[in-house]
């Protein structure tokens, strides 16, 4: 798992880590039992505070996406795909803000959709829908609907 950390982002660094793990798990590409980089490795690599990484890992553990094995580190938990937020919910906030921007520009839906389609093509996404295993699983089993938006570590 590779993380990208941006300080020009208005999201706190711990949240960037949390969201990246959520997307990684929700997409189905995380293997159960796969080990995450240690707190120390991740902190040293990105020159960030180890407490920030710990905070992210604790949250992900509380959400049931990761499990801590004593003296070993953090691993992708069995059943984490079911605990992960629904992929659509992960994408929705950024699309909502894009929709708001489109409205400010006075665009039509067709114009906005065309541009989004262009962006998807630039990312190399296939044109026909490929239903991912995770998405099917999502339709069959109701997921935890209220993803905590506030950190339990916050006062």
């Amino acid at each position: 798992m590779h993380f990208s950390i941006h300080t020009q982002d208005s999201q706190p660094i711990y949240k960037q880590i949390v969201e990246q793990v959520r997307r990684w798990v929700a997409s189905g590409s995380a293997q159960v039992g796969e080990e995450l980089p240690s707190v120390r490795q991740l902190a040293q690599l990105h020159a960030i505070n180890p407490m920030t990484v710990s905070k992210a890992y604790c949250l992900l553990e509380a959400e049931g996406l990761l499990e801590r094995r004593r003296g070993m580190g953090m691993f992708v938990r069995a059943g984490s795909v079911l605990a992960a937020p629904c992929p659509a919910d992960l994408l929705r906030p950024s699309l909502q803000s894009a929709a708001a921007h489109a409205a400010q520009l006075g665009w039509t839906r067709a114009q906005a959709l065309e541009l989004f389609d262009e962006c998807l093509a630039a990312q190399g996404l296939a044109e026909t829908a490929m239903v991912h295993a995770a998405v099917t699983a999502d339709a069959a089993t109701p997921r935890n609907p209220d993803i905590p938006t506030d950190s339990p570590l916050q006062p």
């Binding site: 300080t7 660094i13 020159a47 505070n49």
Partner: peptide, 9 residues
């Protein structure tokens, strides 16, 4: 400040 943002609690 962008350096601080990386490391401060």
């Amino acid at each position: 400040l962008s350096d601080l943002e990386r490391v401060v609690s």
